[in-house]
Amino acid sequence: MDADVALEILKFPIDPSRPLYEQFVERIRAAIARGDLEPGARLPSVRELAAAIRVNPTTIQRMYQELERERLIVSYRGQGTFVTRDAKAIEASRRALAREAVARLRETAESLGLTVQQLIDLARDEEED
């Protein structure tokens, strides 16, 4: 059941000119932040996942290594790989995602000669017209 969720999350149009593992990491990270992949959810094995979405197994291995490094998933020898139950780790990841999103927004604002707040105000103004 959980494994199917992970599979669905990883079925998306891949950008062939960016490292695939990065794209997969982003998808899984977001799914954990949204709660679509719940704490303790079991993830498919490397082999299973690679064969199902037809990518090189090393891509999946790297994805799992990266997510493990970020402490979003944990592997238990002989039992499999699971989404962490560590609420702090998940919160830290969500905060990092929020910071990235705001940084992108700031870039857009600066390219228009605005602060983030001015950008948001401006967008609101237009809605009220």
């Binding site: 490397v46 082999r47 690679a50 064969a51 199902a52 037809r54 990518v55 090189n56 197994p57």
Partner: peptide
């Protein structure tokens, strides 16, 4: 065919 190749490879 692609799935079989990958499964065999990883195994």
């Amino acid at each position: 065919i692609a799935s079989s190749v990958i499964a065999d490879f990883a195994g």
